[in-house]
């Protein structure tokens, strides 16, 4: 086991994690098993440092120092809105939250991507078709709009790994899934007191 742990540590340091199989072996298998389709190109099969670190089968020993370093790197890379304005239009944010399209091979790349928040989170209490993979965000606006709260929420949307490395949530800002304006609109959907997220169910 000691040798295995050491091996994993070295592999992580090089950002080419292999848990029980050699990384290049797995990548070769992937290249032979998939074909590019429309916007879903083959380079999407290559992992960055976060993806590699977060691909451990359950029960595999993790290098906590490496994870702490990686999380700090993510936090330092977060780009806050340059104009200091965090809140957009909650009505446009509602559209982003409900839209599950974007970046699939079957999606029209000229259309805006969705955030698909409802796939995993409960938001407006009147929407019953919500997923449960993430926590309920109903009434999120009760947390207020302090600078700290705005920065925290923005960071969570921009790159969830800055707080919780290996969270299941996509990095909506850091990966370019949503635009800066879309992120502001989702911020408003979460935090605006007038947003349905912060209204009692009818």
């Amino acid at each position: 086991m000691k040798a295995l742990v050491t091996g994993i540590t070295i592999a992580l340091a090089a950002s080419v994690t292999a848990w029980t199989m050699a990384s290049d072996e797995i990548e070769a298998v992937l290249r032979n098993s998939f074909v590019a389709k429309n916007q879903a190109t083959m380079d999407r099969l290559e992992r960055d440092a976060v993806q590699s670190a977060c691909s451990a089968p359950r029960g595999m020993p993790l290098d906590n120092d490496m994870l702490t370093t990686l999380r700090a790197e993510r936090l330092n890379s977060v780009v806050l809105p340059p104009d200091g304005q965090y809140l957009g239009d909650w009505q446009r944010g509602a559209e982003v939250a409900g839209n599950g399209r974007g970046l699939q091979s079957s999606d029209d790349p000229t259309q805006p991507n969705g955030g698909n928040c409802y796939a995993c989170h409960q938001l407006a209490p009147d929407e019953v078709a919500y997923g449960t993979l993430g926590p309920s965000l109903t009434g999120y606006g009760a947390r207020g709009q302090s600078e700290a709260m705005l920065q925290y929420t923005w960071t969570k949307l921009w790159d969830t790994h800055a707080y919780n490395l290996c969270s299941h949530m996509p990095r909506f800002g850091a990966q370019g899934i949503l635009t800066e304006q879309q992120l502001k609109d989702v911020m408003a959907y979460l935090l605006d007191p007038a947003s349905p997220v912060n209204q009692a169910a009818e």
Partner: peptide, 26 residues
């Protein structure tokens, strides 16, 4: 290995949706 392999713009693996009990998507 493939089940837990995270990749793509959304960082999704099979495990993202299929390693927890009693969850649903929408």
């Amino acid at each position: 290995e493939i089940f837990f392999y995270r990749a793509g713009p959304h960082d999704f693996s099979c495990a993202t949706c299929h390693e927890q009990s009693d969850m649903r998507i929408r």
